[in-house]
Write a protein that binds this DNA or RNA. Structure first.
Length: 466
RNA sequence: GGCGGCGUAGCCAAGCGGUUAAGGCGAGGGACUGCAAAUCCCUUAUUCCCCGGUUCGAAUCCGGGCGCCGCCUCCA
């Protein structure tokens, strides 16, 4: 498996599971001050799929995702709502869990909260101060960027270039404009924790360094997040972690492309966003996942209702095939004829080949579509339809790690309701025989409006739920 | 200004030195039907933003343009 790492600016090989089974993976999580929008969901879905694919390939993935529950935005929201930061954080943490469920994301192995790690953060900051990488200034603690020669290696920036653009705030206690806060002295009315430098709270995302160090060790395998986090967030994480440990912080850095709206980044501040749960409920969990996976994870992806609708239709198309194939494949096991089996095997190889090459999900999805198409052509050419069951099983098996094509579409109706629909279908058949099309069409239309779609096939009328 | 990315059919989107240039949506034609819907079959890029170059061979590599976007401030 090869993945494009931001640090190397190129593909990096992940050792095969025979050599290294355990993979430590850290994906930056939400700040719980509001519901997440659909753009925020991209890394959660894409890296969830990556994690599950690795697991399906015999890796044991320790998947960590933090919950940032100490932050200015939480404090502000609490003020607005006349609530407390704890309460806001608690509420939106629960909402976030619900969103993950709606998006079909598996729960992380660990979901640590910043508040539970303040002690460990203080330890790290003390360590950095002791090693001369950080200094205390009137109750604040700052990281000294100049003390870390590698600063800028992730984002490709040089300290000098950054300095040119940096503005020095008159009120700042920093020695150097690029230095960033590790610990902020408490202001009145803000949450605070005791520390060697007086009451305050952790500043920058020291939490990610501490949590990943505690749960995954000093060097983790994969660190992932949106590409808007490369600088300064992840650059600063590297500085803290590596200044403290002297070891590489992460082997592979993955950064997904942004979700855009008419070409512009979706962002709360721009107001061009939709809440993830609203989109998932309108189009369905799998349509949202398909939407994301139909575009390579590093590239920007443009959001629109039309694009989601297209994804929904593409998913439905595969389900149409699955429904037919599974119906035909019930009962006797019929093996695939050689030629078809060969084609399906080739597509399976393409599926894995594409995913192992920088997690190329669009290519992999095309392979699954190709399997369905091969099955359709085979049946249309007069092949034994019962063999299609095997293709359907293969598609479902391969797509499982991606969180696609896992729904059972059997109509969940009571026997009584089914009988009732059956009766109406029978009556309509009689009416059609008598060429009473007016009444027959009324039945069809009324049922359609109730979500029961009739299809007149040469073998008779069948119905499906929409 | 610095750093990074993107530009492939009507639209979305793979491809990363030799393939008939995947796949999806849409559109057109056909089968089926009382008419539909759904489904199925077929068709839909001699060409990959432009101009040069390297090569036997380039959408793919190099140089130069043009256009769009992200980061450099909280941000998935």
């Amino acid at each position: 498996m090869r993945l494009f790492s931001t640090l190397e600016r190129g593909l990096v090989e992940l050792p095969p599971p025979q050599e290294k089974r355990r993979v430590g993976m850290y994906v930056c999580g939400p700040t719980v001050y509001d519901l997440i929008h659909i753009g925020n969901a991209r890394p959660f879905i894409v890296f969830d799929a990556l994690r599950r694919y690795l697991e399906s390939r015999d890796y044991e993935v320790i998947y960590v995702q933090n919950i940032t529950d100490i932050d200015d935005k939480i404090i502000n929201r609490a003020r607005e709502e006349d609530s407390s930061p704890e309460e806001i954080a608690e509420r939106f943490t629960r909402e976030y869990q619900e969103d993950l469920r709606v998006l079909g994301v598996n729960p992380p192995t660990y979901q640590p909260r910043a508040r539970a790690y303040v002690d460990k953060m203080i330890e790290l900051i003390e360590e950095l101060v002791a090693k001369g990488h950080a200094y205390v200034a009137e109750g604040d603690v700052y990281f000294s960027v100049r003390s870390f020669p590698d600063y800028g290696k992730l984002s490709g920036k040089s300290i000098d270039d950054l300095l040119t653009g940096a503005r020095v705030d008159p009120g700042e206690k920093k020695k150097d404009p690029l230095d960033f806060a590790l610990w902020k002295a408490a202001k009145p009315g803000e949450p605070k924790w005791p520390s060697p430098w007086g009451p305050g709270r952790p500043g920058w995302h020291t939490e990610c360094v501490v949590m990943s160090r505690e749960l995954l060790g000093e060097t983790l395998d994969i660190h992932a997040g949106g590409n808007d986090l490369i600088f300064p967030h992840h650059e600063n994480e590297i500085a803290q972690a590596e200044a403290a440990s002297g070891k590489p912080f992460a082997r592979i850095w993955l950064h997904n492309g942004m979700l855009t709206v008419r070409g512009e980044k979706m962002a709360k501040s721009l107001g061009n966003f939709s809440y993830a749960r609203d989109v998932a409920r309108a189009f369905g969990t799998e349509a949202v996942r398909y939407f994301y996976l139909s575009r390579h994870w590093r590239k920007p992806l443009d959001f629109s209702l039309e694009a989601l609708e297209e994804a929904r239709k593409a998913v439905e198309g595969v389900y149409e095939f699955l429904a037919e194939a599974e119906l035909a494949g019930e009962g006797d096991e019929v093996p695939l004829p050689d030629e078809l089996a060969g084609e399906v095997n080739l597509l399976e190889e393409k599926f894995h080949g594409d995913l192992e090459d920088d997690f190329n999900t669009p290519g992999a999805l095309a392979a699954l579509q190709g399997m369905a198409n091969a099955g359709k052509r085979f049946a249309a050419g007069g092949g034994d339809r019962r063999a299609l069951g095997a293709i359907a099983r293969k598609i479902r098996e391969l797509a499982a790690p991606l969180g696609l094509f896992q729904e059972e579409r059997a109509p969940a109706l009571s026997a009584q309701t089914e009988e009732l629909i059956g009766l109406l279908v029978e009556l309509r058949a009689e009416l059609r025989k008598e060429r009473n099309f007016g009444l027959a069409d009324r039945i069809r239309e009324k049922l359609a409006s109730l979500g029961v779609e009739l299809k007149d096939t040469p073998q008779g009328t069948v119905w499906t739920l929409k």
